[in-house]
Design a binder for these strands. Structure first.
Length: 422
RNA sequence: GUGGCUGUAGCUCAACGGCAGAGCGCCACACUGUGGAUGUGGAUGUUGUGGGUUCGAAACCCAUCAGCCACCCCA
C-alpha cells in the first residue's frame, strides 16, 4: 500500500455506515428536544479566544483548545464548548427574547486532548439549556429531557442511570462538618477521586489534603447517605417532578457527583452506564451567572451537554442502534445489454417519478454480477428487462429477499413495486 | 502533559534472528437471462515510518507517527 496522508490525530472518518448512525442520533435528539418545546440554534465554529478566557480557566483553554492566529493577528479558537457562545448570543438579544428561553444544538467541537476510549479531539455534542428560570422544576425538566431521550432510543433504567446531586446541599453539609468555604474545592476534589483510588490510598490522600480523621469519617458517612437529599428542599421538589413524570427510575441521588465545572451553583447531574463502565455519557447542572460573564445581565439557567462518542458506545453496547432500512425500499434497475440501455434508463426514471428510489447499474455487464451487487449493497428489489420483456413492453420484478419474481407490463411496474414493498 | 500495550495482505491474526503465511473477504471460471451455497483457480505486502545492531531483522535497540488502555483533565 502506498503511504496515505494520515488523518488528523483524534478525528474520525464518518463512512456511510457511521454517518447513518450520527444522523439517526441527531434525529432522536431533535425529536426529543422539540417535544419539550426547545428550539434549535447554532453558533459559529470559530470564536475569539477571549470568549473562553472570560469564564473557563485560562490554562484550560490554552492547553486544551485548538488556537491559532488569523491573518489580522487575532487569537482564534476552534470552539471547545458551546456555553460561552450561547451566553453571548443570549446577551446580544437579552432585551428581545421571551424568557424562559429553551434552546438546543448539535454540532462539532474540538479539544486538544489525548484520545482514548470515549474521547476524541473532534466530537459532536448535543447542548440543551433553559435560561431565565431559577427553579428546581426547571432542573427536573432538563433531567427529564435526558431521561426521555434514553427512553426513546430504547435504553432502560437498568442500562443508564442519571446521578444527581446539589452543590448547595454539599456546601451546607460541608459547612456543618466545619470545613471553611475556601477549602471546599479541595474536598470536592477528594470526593471526585474516591472511585479512582483504593480505600486506603483515598484515605491517605484525604488526610494529606488536610482533613482531620474525624472529618474524614463524617465525609465517608455523608457519601454513603442515600437520604441526604431529603435535607434539600430543592432536591425534594426536583424528585417530585420526576416521579410525577414517571421518569424517576432513571434518576438516582448520589452525593459523590460533583462535576468539575466551577460555574455550577445548584443541581448537578451526569449520566452513566448503569453497569458502572466508562466515563460519563453526559453532564450538566445549574449555573446562575452565565450571561453576566460576557457582559449581559446575570441570568440563571440549567443545561447539559452530551457527546456523541460515549453515547454511541453505550447504544452499541446495548444494541440500540437500528440497522439501515433504506435499502429495503430500493430497486436496482439492471442493464441487460448495451442495446437495452436506453430502455432501462427510461424505466428507472419512470419509477423515480412514482417516488421509488432507483439505482441503475452503470454498465452492461453480466446479470449475475449486477444481482450480486444488489445483494451486497442490501438492495432488496431488482428490475430485469431482457429482449423478451422489451419486446412485450414488460419488466421482471424480483424480490431478492423472498426470492420471488413476476413479470408485469412496464406501466404497472411502479404500482407493483409499491405493493411488493408494502 | 505522564506511564503502559500494540502496529504484518482489504479485514482478523500467525511467523518471534534464517525463503512473509493462514482464515475470511476479493477477482475469475464452472454458470453466455438471475444474487447469499458449493467447487476449482488467481491476485495482493517497502511487515506504520526513519535510523541502528547483525553475515542475516517483521522479530533486538533508538527515534518518530498512529491506535488502544490508565493517569491528568473533562467546558
Amino acid at each position: 500500500m502506498k503511504t496515505l496522508i494520515q488523518p488528523v490525530k483524534g478525528t474520525r472518518d464518518f463512512y456511510p455506515e457511521e454517518m447513518s448512525i450520527r444522523t439517526w442520533l441527531y434525529q432522536q435528539i431533535k425529536k426529543v428536544s422539540s417535544s419539550f418545546g426547545y428550539e434549535e440554534y447554532e453558533g459559529p465554529i470559530l470564536e475569539r479566544l477571549d470568549l473562553y478566557a472570560a469564564k473557563s480557566g485560562e490554562e484550560l483553554v490554552k492547553e486544551q483548545s485548538f488556537v491559532f492566529s488569523d491573518r489580522g493577528g487575532d487569537q482564534i479558537t476552534l470552539r471547545p464548548e458551546l456555553t460561552p457562545t450561547l451566553a453571548r448570543m443570549i446577551a446580544q438579544k437579552q432585551n428581545e427574547l421571551a424568557f424562559p428561553v429553551r434552546w438546543w444544538s448539535f454540532g462539532p467541537f474540538w479539544r486538544y486532548e489525548r484520545p482514548q476510549k470515549g474521547r476524541t479531539r473532534e466530537f459532536f455534542q448535543w447542548n440543551i439549556d433553559i435560561l431565565g428560570v431559577d427553579s428546581p422544576e426547571a432542573d427536573a425538566e432538563l433531567v427529564a429531557v435526558a431521561a426521555s431521550f434514553f427512553q426513546s432510543v430504547g435504553l432502560t433504567p437498568n442500562e443508564i442511570k442519571i446521578f444527581v446531586n446539589n452543590r448547595r446541599l454539599m456546601d451546607v453539609t460541608l459547612a456543618e462538618m466545619g470545613i471553611a468555604p475556601e477549602n471546599r474545592k479541595t474536598v470536592f476534589h477528594i470526593i471526585d477521586r474516591r472511585d479512582k483510588l483504593n480505600p486506603n490510598s483515598w484515605k491517605e490522600y484525604a488526610l494529606e489534603c488536610g482533613l482531620t480523621p474525624d472529618q474524614f469519617e463524617q465525609l465517608c458517612h455523608i457519601l454513603e447517605d442515600k437520604d441526604l437529599w431529603k435535607k434539600s428542599d430543592e432536591l425534594v421538589r426536583f424528585f417530585n417532578v420526576l416521579k410525577a413524570m414517571k421518569l424517576d427510575e432513571f434518576v438516582v441521588f448520589d452525593p459523590q457527583v460533583i462535576r468539575g465545572l466551577e460555574y455550577y451553583t445548584g443541581t448537578v447531574f451526569e449520566g452513566r452506564d448503569a453497569a458502572g463502565e466508562g466515563r460519563a455519557v453526559f453532564g450538566g447542572g445549574r449555573y446562575d451567572n452565565l450571561v453576566g460573564d460576557v457582559g449581559g445581565d446575570p441570568l440563571p439557567g440549567v443545561g447539559f451537554a452530551m457527546g456523541d462518542v460515549m453515547v454511541t458506545l453505550l447504544l452499541q453496547k446495548y444494541g440500540k442502534i437500528p440497522a439501515k432500512q433504506e435499502q429495503q425500499k430500493m430497486v436496482l434497475v439492471t442493464i441487460f445489454d448495451s442495446t437495452l440501455l436506453p430502455s432501462s434508463f427510461s424505466l428507472a426514471n419512470k419509477l423515480r417519478l412514482e417516488g421509488i428510489t432507483v439505482v441503475t447499474y452503470p454498465e452492461a455487464v453480466k446479470l449475475q454480477k449486477q444481482l450480486k451487487f444488489a445483494d451486497r449493497k442490501g438492495i432488496r428489489f431488482a428490475a430485469i428487462q431482457g429482449p423478451d420483456e422489451a419486446a412485450a413492453n414488460t419488466v421482471t420484478l424480483k424480490d431478492l429477499l423472498k426470492r420471488e419474481q413476476q413479470t408485469v407490463p412496464v406501466e404497472e411496474a411502479g404500482k407493483t413495486l409499491q405493493s411488493m414493498m408494502a
